[in-house]
Design a protein around this nucleic acid. Structure first.
Lengths: 133, 133
DNA sequence: TAATAACCTACAAAAATAGTAGGATATGCT
DNA sequence: AGCATATCCTACTATTTTTGTAGGTTATTA
């Protein structure tokens, strides 16, 4: 029941982008060096962040990444979901209808996970990237 | 960010114990059969439940497991914690003082995880085993 | 004494995580 | 034009965690 290092690194990197006050994009070489994270691994992380429209890329020399919105308009849950995939505390919570042995009708246990998931999402949405700088 | 099958199976098994109205202990052979879980795996799960004082064992023929308290006095978090270990959404949240690169003082990100963890625990504590039968 | 059940430890397969590696493509600067 | 810098893309690999299996030991009751 832990988040992965992808989320850890991704969030740190997003904070770096938010801290960049110049209008220049931030290259991953810089973040990799400062945070001591493998650059190649960071690239994979940013590939996800990009496809989830949290950042945009500027290719070539003097390029890098830029937040696609102001830091106050990006919440932590968006970042977590982009990097961890859709939140599901159990397999029976993934997908539309539960898969094995979990008829949503009779399953009291499911009520626990439903409420738990909603709470997690609510908490993470409350925090904006701008709260972390 | 998912709980393991140990928690899934363990919780189901605990519900079984709670449903047992007779005063006889419930043997794992029975639960294994009914829930289609490997008995050996269940034994490992119950070893943890026992060491966390959630159940007690009766050895020998006619033996099995019994809840160590009324179902209304056992909450879901206790079961989850027994089977997943101490909750920590990140490595920096494990142990007393964060380990690597996370000085609790300046770390704003930690505030997010602190609040998240407290929320998860609060939600899971709210549900009692008796709510699931 | 035979059947039943918890108890214990070591091992193993499978899946997920956490990276590495190497090249292709695009862009600005000199 | 050409070089340096960056993103982009795919495949591979090592490590760790999860999810069990297997086999035996101990205790209790009918």
């Amino acid at each position: 029941m832990m988040f992965t290092t992808k989320t850890e690194y991704g969030l740190k990197a997003m904070v770096r982008l938010a801290q960049n006050k110049s209008k220049k994009p931030t290259p991953l070489t810089q973040i990799a060096k400062e945070e001591h994270i493998s650059q190649s691994y960071l690239e994979q992380i940013f590939s996800k962040l990009k496809s989830n429209d949290l950042v945009f890329a500027v290719k070539g020399s003097e390029g890098g990444y830029v937040l696609s919105r102001p830091a106050s308009k990006i919440n932590v849950f968006e970042i977590v979901e982009a990097l961890e995939g859709p939140l599901a505390v159990f397999y029976c919570m993934a997908g539309e209808s539960g898969k094995i042995g979990c008829s949503a009708k009779g399953c009291l246990t499911r009520r626990v996970w439903d409420e738990l998931q909603k709470n997690i999402i609510k908490t993470l949405r409350k925090f904006k990237l701008s709260d972390l700088i």
